[in-house]
Every structure is written in structure tokens, then in C-alpha cells.
Design a protein around this nucleic acid. Structure first.
Lengths: 139, 139
DNA sequence: GGTATATATTCGCAGTCACGAATATATTAT
DNA sequence: ATAATATATTCGTGACTGCGAATATATACC
């Protein structure tokens, strides 16, 4: 068993469920980002510019579909791909849409300017955590 | 330009739009069927077991996305794929879902038992047209 | 011309979904 | 224990969507 989207369904239903789940720009971005390397929620928050709750909701959808998995590391919870093959599906769609094959990975490297997560700022003062930097960035 | 789903959008929006369009079992079936060979609406009606209006609605979505095109031949209107590459996207998803690569083409060859379209029944009496056979099949 | 056939379109509705807001939970630091 | 931090969950709402029903359009046949 490779993918566990929706077992015990017709093939077209299984496939369409996958498409319905990744048929949302934010979720494609999330998959591209954490496909590049595991990321915490605050990293996604900084990169995508969305509210934390919204991202958590999308992550919940991806979790229930067994596309991503969560793992706590210190204060943060890092998400990673369960099945990297999902990127091949997205990449195939990117090619179909006339994009260069590298356009997908470019999604993962966009506006990481003021990202506060400990992965982006390894030796940073722990006082300056995600929320601190996020609020100071918007001020 | 290969695919014209939604120009002038971010890459992830374009890709997600494609996924949203094919994120529906019926539409995947339609694409698989007419990807095999062009089919008229009544053929889809017989194979899918859906109402005519519903199929026309799905076809309208696929038409607006420039995935299928319509062409009249006699009484019937035959649909065919504009960009067969969309099947590669679906196939990639099928592989991801753990199906065999041939599972996609199997969608096109399912319950064609009582299909009334002139393509399925070449030398049939023109009196026995789509609606006639459809109603007689359900009686 | 009129009639039947094949398909398209419109309308109304129920279901789903994404988002914002608010709140809850879990972990860390003091 | 208390407070702060990082993330999750719930709730309400507006928007979208798929379907059935009804109707409209276009072509073919007489």
C-alpha cells in the first residue's frame, strides 16, 4: 500500500479525493515547502502569510489524508511528507500547465524573508520566537 | 502554451485549478472514456448511469477549462480531449494511489452493456436512437 | 413548415468548504 | 505552580458546487 487516501472506493473516487485535497493553492504550497525540507507551522505561517489557524486547518486535512505527518521537536511541531510521491503528481500537473519542471521547487523558496522559525535562524535568541518576530515584522 | 486552465495566476493557483476540475469522480471517468476514443453524450450517459443534464454540466466545466472540445457529427455531439496530457496527470495520481498503470484505461471500458450510441451500434436502425434504447433498457 | 431527437442552459437547493474569530491544549521556561 | 509559547480545535458564516427539475436550443427527419 503506497497511498491511503480513501480505501474501499472505486478507483476514480480514490483519485478524485486526492485531487480534491490538493486542489487548493495553499495546500500545494505546503506540500512543496515541506517536500523540500520539514517545516514547522510558524515557518509556513511566515512563508504563506496566512493566519495560524488557517494553516493548521489545512494541515489537518493533509494529515487525515495521510499526506503529511507531524512530529514535535522542542517547542515546534515539524511537518514532513509521508509519501513524497505526491510531489510527482503535482509536478506532472505543473508540466501539463506548461511550467518548467523546476517551478514546483520554486514554490518552496519564496518569501522567506522574515521567517522566525528556529530552522531559519539557528543561533537566534530563544526570546525571539515565532510569535515575537511575526508581530514585530508586521509593526 | 500547452494548458490554458487559468492564465495570469500564480503557479500553485493554476495547478490547484486543474486539480479542482478533475477532483471529481465523474469528470475523471469522462476524461478516461473520451481519452480512449471520442464519445457522444448519450454514450457517457449510458456508461456512467447519470442524467443527461448532469453530464452536460460536467462537460461544460471541462470545456471551460479547455480540457475537452465538442464536435457535432450527425445527430450527436462528440467530445474529445484537447490535451491528452491530462491523462498523464490522472495516471500519475493512480500510480500514487497504488493502482496499476493500466487501471486508468480500465475506467473507459466498464459497463458499456446497453450503450445506444451509434458508435457502439454502427448498423443499428436509426429509429433506435439514444433515448429510445435508454428508456427500453430501464424497462 | 412541423416534430422528434440530442444536447445545453437555467434555477433552486442542499451539502461542503475555507476562512476569521475565539478558545483549548500541550509543552517550555521561570 | 504560573506564565508564555506553539499549535490544535471549534464555531459561525459566506461562498462555492453538484445535482435534479425544468426549460431552451439546435439539428435531423418527415
Amino acid at each position: 500500500m503506497t497511498a491511503n487516501i480513501y480505501p474501499a472506493s472505486s478507483p476514480e473516487t480514490q483519485i478524485s479525493h486526492l485531487f480534491a485535497i490538493i486542489g487548493q493553492p495553499v495546500r500545494i504550497q505546503i506540500l512543496a515547502i515541506i517536500g523540500n525540507e520539514p517545516a514547522c507551522v510558524c515557518h509556513l505561517e511566515a512563508v504563506l502569510g496566512l493566519r495560524q489557524a488557517s494553516i493548521s486547518q489545512h494541515l489537518m486535512v493533509l494529515r487525515k489524508a495521510n499526506l503529511v505527518t507531524a512530529q514535535r521537536e522542542g517547542r515546534n511541531i515539524f511537518y514532513r511528507l509521508v509519501q513524497p510521491g505526491v510531489l510527482a503528481v503535482i509536478e506532472q500537473a505543473a508540466v501539463f500547465a506548461g511550467m518548467t519542471p523546476g517551478a514546483l521547487s520554486a514554490l518552496a523558496l519564496r518569501p522567506v524573508a522574515g521567517c522566525p522559525c528556529p530552522q531559519c535562524n539557528p543561533g537566534i535568541d530563544p526570546e525571539l520566537s515565532c510569535n515575537t518576530l511575526s508581530s514585530s515584522k508586521s509593526s
